[in-house]
């Protein structure tokens, strides 16, 4: 039995930080319900991560291995997840709202006959029911949602929930999974992964974004800043920069791009349209560099520099480098 079940996402042979965030949160929910917390890990690299999730509060670790689970595939992963949820009597099922989780959660939910409270940024228990608070309209407003059926499924936004150590037994149990191969599915032909180790915007702790004020596709100054911060930082863009063809679509922050919640968001040459502000407005700290003192971005920025970004950023990078080198 695991009334609270957490799907631990593994990417390229590594357990993701979101898995620890969810395990910590799942532990808290399980304690609130007086229940056990179990973590499901799938695929060929799964078992080695059992001690990691145990450290953050997993009473049980369910390992599912099958040839169909060697690389991610929505159908088989959803089948396996739905099976474990049923077998273990899950009443709460938590998944990350990552690209992977967004693909998996609704398919598994449909198999279980439930809907998902998606993209939650916090949870509470109300009379034994899980309530998730989530942004809507790309963060223009928030609401609390509750699932009326069991298991209560929710996805949580990466990089928001607190990671907290709380060691538990983490007893490993292998699950026997025989997939229904009559269901048509896709096959992966090619994976074109960015090997630079660039962290996805939605999971970055620090984002340096460039907008129309960049004047062209040269983002070297922003890349340099991200490089100084290291692997937890990445470069983003406004819609204007993406539509101009300066940056790939996957870099776009805003209502028709990605909604992000980094610890630090540095907006360079971004005026701050309502769509952009919705997408990054819940960043913990916002820095804006813009020539126009009237730019709306300054109304949201904790620190604003009115000036030419091509003059300010090199100095910013220099300062940053010497500070972080200390």
């Amino acid at each position: 039995m695991s009334k609270v079940l957490i799907y631990g996402e593994i990417k390229a042979g590594k357990l993701k930080k979101t898995a620890l965030e969810l395990t910590s949160e799942g532990r808290k929910i399980a304690d609130g319900l007086g229940a056990d917390a179990g973590v499901v890990l799938m695929g060929p690299h799964a078992e080695q991560f059992a001690p990691d999730v145990a450290k953050y509060g997993a009473d049980k670790v369910y390992i599912v291995e099958a040839p169909q689970l060697e690389s991610y595939n929505s159908e088989y992963f959803a089948q396996a997840l739905a099976q474990v949820a049923k077998e273990k009597g899950a009443e709460v099922l938590l998944i990350s709202h990552s690209i992977h989780g967004k693909d998996l959660a609704p398919r598994a939910a449909a198999k279980l006959g439930v809907a998902v409270v998606a993209d939650c940024i916090s949870f509470e228990l109300d009379g034994g029911k899980l309530v998730g608070r989530r942004p809507m309209y790309a963060g223009k407003c928030y609401a609390k949602w509750v699932s009326l059926s069991s298991p209560q499924m929710a996805t949580a936004r990466p990089n928001v929930l607190e990671v907290r150590e709380n060691p538990k037994a983490g007893a490993v149990e292998k699950i026997s999974f025989s997939p229904d191969t009559s269901r048509a599915t896709y096959t992966t032909k090619d994976l074109n992964l960015d090997t630079s180790g660039k962290v996805d915007l939605t999971e970055a702790e620090i984002i340096i974004s460039g907008g129309r004020g960049m004047g062209g596709p040269d983002y070297a100054l922003l890349e340099e800043a991200a490089g100084i911060f290291g692997s937890r930082a990445t470069v983003g863009a406004s819609r204007a920069a993406v539509d101009a063809g300066w940056r790939p679509h996957s870099d776009q922050v805003g209502q028709t791009g990605k909604t992000v919640t980094p610890n630090l968001y540095i907006a360079c040459g971004i005026s701050g349209s309502i769509q952009h502000l919705a997408g990054m407005g819940s960043s913990k700290v916002i820095v804006a560099i813009n020539k126009d003192p009237e730019a709306p971005i300054f109304t949201k920025a904790d620190y604003g520099i009115v000036g030419d970004l091509f003059k300010v950023l090199p100095e910013f990078n220099k300062e940053l480098k010497s500070l972080l080198a200390e």
């Binding site: 439930v114 916002i286 604003g304 009115v306």
Partner: peptide, 29 residues
């Protein structure tokens, strides 16, 4: 399958420190 309640606006962000008229090295620092 789902029910919503307690819609709310995001916390109002106040404009912070705006640095104007400083030389770029000083502003950056």
């Amino acid at each position: 399958k789902l029910q919503s309640k307690e819609y709310s606006m995001p916390p109002e962000r106040k404009a912070g420190k705006k640095i104007e008229g400083l030389e770029p090295p000083d502003a950056a620092k």
